[in-house]
Amino acid sequence: MILPGWILGGMKHAIRVRGLKKRYGEVQAVAGLDLDVAHGEVFAVLGPNGAGKSTTVEILEGYRERDEGEVTVLGRDPARPTREWRSRIGIVLQTADDRAELTVRETLRHFATCYANPRDPDELMEQVGLADSAGKRIRQLSGGQRRRVDVALGVIGRPELLFLDEPTTGFDPEARRQFWDLIAGLARDGTTIVLTTHYLEEAEALADRVAVVARGRVVAEGDPATLGGRGTAKARVAWSEGEIETDTPTAAVLELSRRYDGEIPGLTVTRPTLEDVYLRLIEAGEPLADGAPQTVGSAS
């Protein structure tokens, strides 16, 4: 497809948000939020309940109107969705408990009729691990199977951009791993994915970049490995009789080993986890530059 330059310019990012604001009565749910998501990227939005994550995502999906700000999703303003635009977007909602009397196969086939070039429902059921449940009614499925249906419905139209709103809430660890494999597969095929989640290990496993949202703003953004100065933070060396923070943990361990003449009792060496960084970020609530040096809290 050959496109004029001005369209390509606007399409550099799959999503571009500037100064987004949304208020519900007295509550400023989104208070001037900026966001860029590149094509083909897996982008995770982290934040506590009520931080404005879901409101933001629903504005991007075309479900909610904004009060202020510029928003472009796949080259269009989502407040004025068209069928063509909707056909390029896949949505997996946070809560979907429709108690349909249709079977899994019937549901996928039906949703496929809305798209120009849908995936094959039978192949898709195989890929998301629903092949054995194809003839079951949606109502009879377990929570994890339901979520697979949700994801299958989200991707059946071969979306360029997929929104996943807290996709694995309530999953057991094994189901969560399988789900991550599925999402990683979609990402490898070039689907741009925007994911909101409460699970930091999920963001770490899937996302190329994360944004931490608190009080309606992005307070930190970047690679999950280096977010909030995580990559350059001091390591904590702890053992049964004490702990230190140091830039040279190897030297510290060697020194301790000499002191104890071999094994160090109860030795652990840790760097701040994404969770440590995240908790500090949402408590501070102040915007932080990515990669800024940080001191690590002494208690854990």
Partner: peptide
């Protein structure tokens, strides 16, 4: 659950007609 087929190249394939979708509904 890994090998998802690559998305087909975006063509200007027309969306299904509203009448077809209404009958499917």
């Amino acid at each position: 659950m890994t090998a998802t087929p690559a998305p087909a190249p975006r063509t200007a394939a027309p969306l299904p007609s509203p009448i077809k979708i209404a009958l499917a509904r």
